[in-house]
Design a protein around this nucleic acid. Structure first.
Ligand code: SF4
Ligand code: SF4
Lengths: 147, 147
DNA sequence: AATATTAAGACAAATTTTATCTTAATTTGA
DNA sequence: TCAAATTAAGATAAAATTTGTCTTAATATT
């Protein structure tokens, strides 16, 4: 029940990039150094981000990465799902047919409800939010108080 | 970003038990059969639940498991944490000192906020809720709509 | 005391995570 | 023009976690 180190690195790497002027080409080496993460691991992570299309990669000398999608449009959920795969609290929340018990399972509905909440929370933050010191709590107060 | 199969089995195993009259001694074999889960795996899961204290185990013929805590008082969060370990969306949400970057990390606060929400959601459901057909959505409407 | 039944605990396979190491592409400059 | 330098891409591998099974020990029954 956690995001991977890779997702943590990816998010902070993208935030680092988003702080640069739009269009800046960034090297993995610099991204890694400035985010306290292993460069070779970060390299593979950005490889995956490039495949997904949210960043563009240039190979060779003067290569590097730029955004292919505006940081404002890259949600935390997107990043986590690109790196860790779909966010699925329990297998039945993608499609009920993935579990033979789903038809008469008592707890199925809880997972879909909590998943919805988590999914929306992760979608409500963008990379740009953290790059521009515009962070603010995007969760309604009730979310933190309903206990 | 998901609960383990083991936690899913544990929750449903406990719900199965909670449907029996209070005090009923249940065999792993029956619990497993009625929850569509591998008996030997369920055995190890209930071993862990017994160690945690929420159920009591009896060894030998006529052995089995009974609740040691009322199903009303066993939250989903408790079960998941007993089986999967602490629910921690990202390492920094337990204690900031677990991450050297926490001091000047842009995204740290998001994780603590979302963690609070998730934690409260999982705490708001008990095993008894699912055993007695008393399930109802315990999340405030805003949680599902704030996007 | 032998047998049957049950959970406890040791062991192991499979998968996922977290990386590193090698290769290929591109630019630069001798 | 071609070697050297630089950068990402891709292959490989170690470590940790998950998902189980198999063997042992405890207890009750006959
Ligand atoms: S909660 Fe119910 S429906 Fe979902 S995976 Fe578990 S058994 Fe299947
Ligand atoms: S989000 Fe920031 S504080 Fe939390 S683990 Fe990642 S780097 Fe550390």
């Amino acid at each position: 029940m956690n995001i991977s180190r890779a997702s943590d690195y990816a998010i902070r790497g993208l935030v680092y990039m988003a702080k640069k002027p739009a269009g800046t080409v960034c090297f993995v080496k610099d991204i890694a150094k400035n985010t306290n993460s292993p460069a070779s691991f970060m390299s593979k992570i950005f490889q995956t981000l490039a495949k997904s299309g949210i960043v563009h990669s240039f190979i060779g000398t003067k290569g590097g990465f730029t955004f292919n999608t505006r940081p404002e449009d890259i949600t935390i959920k997107m990043v986590v799902e690109i790196i860790d795969g779909p966010i699925v609290l329990n297998r039945c929340v993608i499609n009920k047919s993935s579990c033979q018990n789903a038809g008469n399972c008592d707890v199925h509905f809880m997972w879909t409800d909590i998943q919805k909440m988590l999914s929306k929370a992760l979608s409500s933050y963008s990379i740009a939010d953290f790059a521009n010191d515009t962070f603010k709590n995007k969760l309604p107060k009730s979310d933190l108080n309903f206990a």
